[in-house]
Write a protein that binds this DNA or RNA. Structure first.
Lengths: 152, 152
DNA sequence: CTGGATGCAAACTCTTTGCATGCAT
DNA sequence: ATGCATGCAAAGAGTTTGCATCCAG
């Protein structure tokens, strides 16, 4: 995923529309399943697992299958409309928030929260180039304790 | 950054000794399997998968089992002697390097390299505290293209 | 001795695949 | 009409668990 991702960021609310546009552009089908997945992600705007998506989409569209949900999530990620995250515990989450942000992970309960703050990664990017690497984007995970776990 | 991890950082070469000390302290057994795993990690000093460890340890200690390798890796991680990493593709790697460092991940081939550069995460940590979180450490993953993949 | 660690095999979870049917275009 | 997307079921990868045996302390 090249430079584009950071440049053409779309408002999350347009995720459904962006998907439809991308599908037409690519000559792929606009199906109820795909729309339902996109809508759900746009509404929730938080990290969800494939299983979450499946459960919730199934409420509105009985009969969707988990493989279809995975396929659609893959598609959305390929289109750069959502982002795939990995927790410390190895679980896969999908994040419909496209604006640059980072994550807090609680070492005790595993909860993941967005963190809104700029990152100064100049030194890292410079060092990366020095090592022959062409940096695209930086993702930070800050681990620690959430408020609830801190008190126990 | 709390305390322990940064303060009592041991040279990787002492990983075996550190394990033995920790085992005795906790009244756990010093077994050939555990020693072999520790020694291998100390020697390689790079990211390895559980399978890697299993294969290589088995060369010296025929009969080790994969579950034992996993158990030992979990133990080492719990003791803070190695670190668990997750790649974008979901694979789990174990990193015997304890000094603070970050990672470069090639978006094309998935290769992971260490990056040696300081991180200015002041803003992130402050923001984390403002959100009620007690930050411990920050881990950065810079994605981009490695030298080889860039040329294709 | 004695309980914790091991090896084996099987279970488990999450994700992907193959194939026949069906629907968007 | 055409063939891509779907649903189902089953396979697959990676990790964990249960249990009898064994060995470090």
């Amino acid at each position: 995923m090249p430079s584009t991702a950071t440049v053409q960021t779309e408002p999350p609310a347009d995720l459904e529309a962006a998907l439809v546009a991308a599908l037409r552009r690519r000559g792929q089908r606009v199906t109820p399943q795909r729309l339902a997945v996109a809508r759900l992600l746009a509404e929730r705007r938080e990290h969800v697992t494939a299983e979450d998506v499946y459960q919730r989409v199934a409420e509105r569209l009985p009969g969707v299958s988990l493989p279809t949900v995975y396929a659609t999530l893959d598609l959305l990620e390929e289109l750069g409309l959502i982002r795939r995250l990995l927790t410390e515990s190895g679980a896969v989450l999908y994040d419909p928030e496209l604006t640059e942000h980072h994550h807090l992970v609680c070492a005790a309960c595993g909860e993941i929260t967005d963190i809104e703050a700029p990152l100064d990664d100049q030194h890292l990017r410079t060092a990366a180039r020095r090592q022959g690497f062409t940096p695209d984007r930086s993702q930070v995970v800050v681990s620690g304790l959430c408020r609830a776990c801190r008190q126990t």
